[in-house]
């Protein structure tokens, strides 16, 4: 019996430091020696998962990445420069507990809100980039997310750069009410100007992308990519099931379903993400277009 407790203590001392490392981990699932795939529930060595870009070796499930983890994965080393990393909301802070929630999430994630924006190069191609992070209130879009995305798009328009946006969001942020809703119009209008300036916007949908983000910038890319099996939709599956009073078919609102129905261009495995983005950016580089007889 005593040995059992001893064993437990030993185990805990092993797990604890691993838990403390969690915050720095580029993946959203808690990291220990083993990582359990949220989809197939199999355990794998964490190092093995990390080496495999956080894709489950068993079932090919693409685990959620943090914004910082995603940046590390796709941009050229050392090329990322953050923009507007200190922006704070001035909206509706009288919502009970909202300010505190923001502070604690900022401390936990190292982000000022649910999106990280900046400029970088991908395979040598200069681009503006925005990456959403679902750890931050489900990646919901309030004024800061809307403002940062808008500023990133406006920056790209001004500097005549392409923009790549990785989405991961539960939709508009309830705590900021109507202001959140209006961010949908604000970001879409900014993209309209970028579009009219003849510049490239690549939208990369990751799991999950729903609600107000799907109904605004996520759906407006010149090219829309998605990670395998990502949930993408406007209304959440539970709301739909309650409305139509029947079970949804297998694979409904998954990336493969959207591809079949014509709403995304291509599903890209994480291992091929950087090279695909690089190729697409090169194909749209100003020099390439001029040579094409433009």
């Amino acid at each position: 019996m005593i040995s059992l407790f001893k064993q437990r203590r030993q185990m805990l001392t092993r797990i604890k430091p691993a838990r403390q490392r969690t915050q720095k981990s580029p993946v959203c699932v808690p990291k220990g020696i083993y990582t359990r795939c949220p989809d197939c529930k199999q355990d794998f060595l964490s190092d093995q998962i990390a080496a495999g870009l956080y894709v489950c070796p068993g079932c090919d499930y693409h685990m959620k990445l943090t914004a910082q983890g995603r940046i590390k994965l796709v941009v050229d080393k050392g090329s990322f420069h953050e923009l507007n990393g200190r922006l704070q909301t001035t909206e509706c802070l009288d919502f009970p507990g909202y300010s505190e929630k923001l502070s604690s999430l900022q401390a936990a994630t190292g982000l000022n809100d649910a999106v990280l924006t900046g400029v970088c190069t991908i395979e040598g191609q200069k681009t503006v980039i925005a990456v959403m992070d679902s750890r931050f209130l489900m990646g919901s879009m309030g004024s800061v997310v809307g403002e940062k995305v808008t500023r990133a798009v406006e920056y790209a328009t001004k500097k005549r750069l392409p923009i790549v946006i990785f989405t991961a969001s539960g939709g508009a942020r309830m705590q900021e009410g109507i202001v959140s809703l209006m961010q949908m119009a604000k970001t879409s209008n900014a993209l309209s100007r970028h579009h009219k300036a003849g510049l490239l916007y690549i939208s990369c949908l990751t799991h999950p992308t729903t609600g107000g983000v799907t109904a605004s910038f996520a759906s407006l890319g010149d090219i829309i990519l998605s990670e395998p099996r990502a949930l993408i939709g406007f209304a959440g599956p539970r709301v739909i099931e309650q409305t139509i009073r029947q079970k949804l078919p297998e694979g409904f609102q998954r990336a493969e379903f959207l591809l079949e129905h014509g709403f995304i261009d291509k599903i890209i495995k994480r291992s091929e993400l950087r090279s695909t983005l690089g190729t697409l950016l090169k194909l749209h580089a100003p020099a390439a277009r001029t040579r094409g007889g433009g």
């Binding site: 949908m184 119009a185 879409s188 209008n189 993209l191 309209s192 100007r193 579009h195 009219k196 799907t214 109904a215 605004s216 910038f217 996520a218 759906s219 407006l220 993408i232 939709g233 406007f234 209304a235 959440g236 709301v239 739909i240 409305t243 139509i244 949804l248 409904f252 609102q253 129905h261 014509g262 709403f263």
Partner: peptide
């Protein structure tokens, strides 16, 4: 609000709303 149904998702509810926001702006 927009209808949260099976077919409305299949036919791109999100894309349709996004398109309107973008186009109405200009």
């Amino acid at each position: 609000g927009a209808y949260p149904g099976l077919e409305s998702e299949m036919h791109g509810q999100g894309e349709a709303i996004a398109r309107n926001l973008m186009e109405m702006g200009s």
